[in-house]
Computed example of a mutant assay.
Amino acid sequence: MFKKAKRTQAKIKLAITGPAGSGKTYSALRLARGLVGPGGKIALIDTENGSASLYSEQFDFDVLNLEPPFEDASFIEGIQGAVNAGYEALIIDSASHFWEAILDYKDKLDRRGGNSFTNWNEAGKHFKGVLNAVLHSPIHVIACLRSKTEYIIETNERGRVVPRKVGLAPVMRDGIEYEFTTVFDIDLSHQAATSKDRTGLFTDKVFQVTEETGQQIAGWLTATGGQAAPEAPSTQPAPAAKPVPASHPADSGKPATDQQIKNIEALWQRLGYGQEQRQKLFQWLDAEALKGAENWTDLTQEQAARAIGFLSKKASEGGAA
């Protein structure tokens, strides 16, 4: 009945979150190629008006284009089709659309009348059907999730007041990150950090998602010793359509960049936090190294990236430190 548990029996279920322009699709394709190797088969469910096919010259993959209105049955059929066709990895871009489909279905039920709680229960069954198809499929699944975006006002290097787009929580059911093995959060400078990582390979790291990232996960799954994520971003050139700059080193010992500090200050002002919360944050980041620290300039790039992720989440929740 029972048998020895082995990671070789598992397939990664991973989410990539980020605002528009952060490079989710490109990162997912690089990750998938690293996972399955140079000859592995990759499928992609595209709900973004065929945008993934822009990368068809850089990557070898097959695509299923879904058009609105999106329905849960279409996603389930696509996932099962990838499994039956022998694909080794499936990318869903964007998985946020099947959550929006559930919200639309709930809205239709509400317009018909009835109890809202009962309607949510019915809509939830449809959501669970898609989620189960993702989690129980015997292949690697990478789900790209759009982040909610918001514009904050800040002063640029020329002293001009300008709006800037920031990414917050993913467009998906609250708590969805608990369903995935690992969640990569990518910012507009194409740097990734993890809000959840059961592999332990990427915890407290700031990096770019590359083929090597997928190779590390594949090594971990087969228990052959995946190595920790490299902190320096890859220098491999990105495609012309969406270049991924290699000018943002994520060296854990280097001081936070001016842009990181601006991001922290903008989020801090929005949350209305003061010195007491700052000391709590410093303790959470590194109580020993930041003992006595008072300024954001005391942070390293890695600490600043973690602080931005934490504060962005708090801002989206409207919570306290």
Results as ranks from 00 to 15, higher is better:
residue 227 Q to S: 11
residue 234 S to R: 08
residue 314 K to I: 02
residue 153 I to N: 14
residue 159 G to I: 00
residue 94 S to Y: 11
residue 247 S to R: 09
residue 298 D to Q: 12
residue 261 I to T: 10
residue 158 R to H: 03
residue 303 Q to I: 07
residue 250 A to D: 11
residue 255 P to H: 15
residue 171 V to F: 03
residue 263 N to P: 00
residue 235 T to D: 13
residue 256 A to H: 07
residue 301 Q to Y: 04
residue 312 S to E: 15
residue 161 V to N: 09
residue 184 F to E: 01
residue 82 A to W: 06
residue 55 Y to E: 09
residue 255 P to R: 15
residue 102 I to S: 11
residue 147 S to N: 05
residue 23 G to C: 04
residue 36 V to F: 05
residue 118 T to E: 14
residue 13 K to W: 02
residue 253 G to I: 13
residue 259 Q to H: 10
residue 108 K to V: 11
residue 19 P to N: 13
residue 158 R to W: 01
residue 24 K to H: 03
residue 227 Q to Y: 12
residue 261 I to P: 10
residue 22 S to H: 08
residue 236 Q to D: 15
residue 171 V to C: 05
residue 1 M to V: 10
residue 196 K to E: 01
residue 317 E to T: 05
residue 46 D to N: 01
residue 24 K to M: 02
residue 37 G to I: 00
residue 75 F to N: 07
residue 21 G to E: 11
residue 267 L to W: 04
residue 307 A to Y: 04
residue 74 S to R: 12
residue 219 G to P: 00
residue 137 S to V: 00
residue 131 L to C: 08
residue 146 R to E: 03
residue 218 A to Y: 07
residue 9 Q to L: 14
residue 144 C to W: 03
residue 68 P to N: 06
residue 3 K to F: 07
residue 63 V to F: 04
residue 321 A to C: 15
residue 237 P to H: 13
residue 116 S to K: 15
residue 282 F to D: 07
residue 256 A to N: 08
residue 263 N to C: 07
residue 293 A to P: 11
